[in-house]
Design a protein around this nucleic acid. Structure first.
Length: 298
DNA sequence: CAGTGTCAAGGTGGA
DNA sequence: TCCACCTTGACACTG
């Protein structure tokens, strides 16, 4: 079991997702920003290792405008050494990373131009992980997409478009249940059509459920991962107390997290904590998981 | 230099 | 048909 947090570290005073306005794009600006972002990513991973936080989601903003036509700078070549070094660090310390493109990636869109932009964005994400020479256990997670008034047709469109993707994307792509459209059951059905592994989001499941209990959901989603996909990944969060339904908690609730570990034992999973205070909660969770006996150092 | 409007990209649901 | 919302930081312009 590895435990991690997404994209941002609030302790070390740098961001690996610095960006700038499209209007001020230049190759020089891109290279200067990417250089800083990579230095910061390296710093975050070193912080994480020290804290025994072995799982991390790399921000989609690592390379600003990475999939935009304006971005013609050959960043993979210019920064090949830096990417390679970060990848080696990850592998040598038995760490794991993932990425999560945001809402604009919609494989099941009806508009071919939206699909085109989505594929370009997925290619960019795969290129980042490839530049680090990471194997297929470094995953890219997306949602099913829109409903467009016809769930069945939209799910079929997902399966059809998925089968057309490049191998560099296919080997990394996993699909996650969301909080308003497609449930775990929907994702499992898509898996049956496509073989895509299903990443289970515990919090989305509580908001948008399809009947399964947590233990059953973890087991069924976990069974969709092949051995070379690695340990199944889970997104974990809880409701912000008093917040609007679906809002992520500010900090980890230790009692609820302990309960979750008990419910899912002894299945091995890698847990991404989608909690607002990021590494602070991850530190608490690592302590709890160690006490629970599930967390093992490499 | 502080304050603040705005930022590549989409879908949904209410008015 | 149009707009707010989702969700979030921070860029970059204005005064």
């Amino acid at each position: 079991m590895k435990i991690g947090y997404p994209c941002i570290n609030r302790s070390i005073g740098c961001s690996s997702g610095r960006t700038f306005r499209l209007a001020s794009y230049s190759c020089e600006r891109l290279e200067a920003t990417l250089n800083e972002n990579l230095r910061c990513l390296d710093a975050i991973l070193r912080f994480n290792l020290e804290a025994e936080i072995l799982f991390f989601r790399i921000t989609s903003d690592l390379v600003p405008f990475g999939s935009h036509p304006i971005c013609t700078a050959p960043w993979q070549e210019t920064f090949a050494g830096e990417f390679s070094d970060i990848g080696r660090f990850i592998r040598e310390h038995n760490m794991r990373v993932s990425m999560h493109p945001d809402q604009f990636v919609i494989i099941n869109a009806k508009d071919p131009e939206i699909i085109g932009r989505s594929v370009a964005e997925l290619r960019y994400h795969a290129a980042v992980l490839d530049a680090m020479h990471l194997d297929r256990t470094a995953k890219i997670q997306i949602h099913v997409g829109g409903v467009y008034g016809d769930r069945e047709a939209s799910m079929e469109r997902f399966s059809r478009e998925y089968s057309r993707l490049d191998e560099s994307i296919l080997r990394r792509l996993v699909v996650e249940n969301d909080d308003s459209r497609y449930t775990l059951t929907d994702c499992l059905r898509i898996h049956e059509e496509t073989d895509i592994p299903v990443l289970f989001d515990v919090f989305h499941h509580t908001v948008n459920h399809s009947g399964e209990g947590v233990a059953e959901a973890v087991a069924r989603s976990g069974a969709t991962w092949r051995p070379d996909d690695g340990i199944p990944m889970i997104d974990y969060s809880t409701q912000m107390p008093g917040g609007r339904k679906g809002r992520h908690a500010e900090s980890l609730d230790p009692a609820l997290f302990s309960q979750f570990l008990s419910q899912t034992a002894p299945t091995d999973i890698d847990i991404m904590l989608e909690i607002k205070d990021k590494e602070k909660s991850a530190l608490v969770a690592v302590g709890i998981a160690r006490a629970d006996g599930r967390f093992r150092l490499p």
